[in-house]
Design a protein around this nucleic acid. Sequence first.
DNA 1: TATTGTTATACTCTATAACTATA
DNA 2: TATAGTTATAGAGTATAACAATA
Lengths: 151, 151
Amino acid sequence: MANELTSTDALVQASFLIQGMLERRAGEHDISLIQTRLLGILRDRTPTINELAQVLGLDKSSTSGLVDRAQRRGLVRRVPSQLDRRSVRVRLTDAGREQVQAVAAGFAGDIATMLEPLAAEDRAALTRYLSEMLVAHAAAHGLDLFATGTA
Amino acid sequence: MANELTSTDALVQASFLIQGMLERRAGEHDISLIQTRLLGILRDRTPTINELAQVLGLDKSSTSGLVDRAQRRGLVRRVPSQLDRRSVRVRLTDAGREQVQAVAAGFAGDIATMLEPLAAEDRAALTRYLSEMLVAHAAAHGLDLFATGTA
DNA sequence: TATTGTTATACTCTATAACTATA
DNA sequence: TATAGTTATAGAGTATAACAATA
């Protein structure tokens, strides 16, 4: 029995595991993964529908519907833009912020538990390598990993 | 500007990035992420609907529908079980195997490109840490990371 | 009675195309 | 004309509940 994983398998299996954990925590608060992701993005940004669609990798119509459903639950608000009256900015409500913080808290615990078997220095190295990978990928694709959306 | 990520952020961002890559490659073959995942599982197993539901973390009814749609595309077959006439086994067709191999090939290239910025020894260490984490997690949850489904 | 799988139903999520309002 | 966003439509994906067949 081969007890080793290829880089691809390790990354894929880890990604499914993490998504599953996130989905389960979100489910505890009766919210979907994509809704949670939406709220997570809005924690430090107030983007337009188009910007949101770009970040999420969705069509603007899909994004509009996503925001509709979040709004119906009182988690986000559409704020009319003064600069361009065609445009709106999507903003987290207090309820939305509480929601995403509750999910994030539980999930952070899951990650901590998952990393526990690793030695402390290995955990740090893992984080460092992933960060390096993500930063390089973002740079190669002209994305800002640390966008604050304050512009 | 803080150019560092927490463990949680690094893992989450990496998981979304990987899932997005996989989804894009699957989309090139007009297939969804979950369908691709189904086919991937079936590469080395011929599980029942219930077993599949367990692995995918879905309800058996959702799994039944998933298999329906894959079957309609000619990617899988339902094989009646001889041991228990209530049960069926889901098996990849030749077309399904071709499909999943085509997606996997493109995707392996994405992963290689993504890992390229890392030094070779760091790539190896990253894979080792992730594997260690996955093996420990599987053990803690009574799962077999290397199940072959030949039973 | 319990289990395996399917079906009916309802909802979320998604894309495409057509539309409205504004630029 | 072009762009921002919404709406109409269709389909995939999901869970719950009820069901049929088999154990």
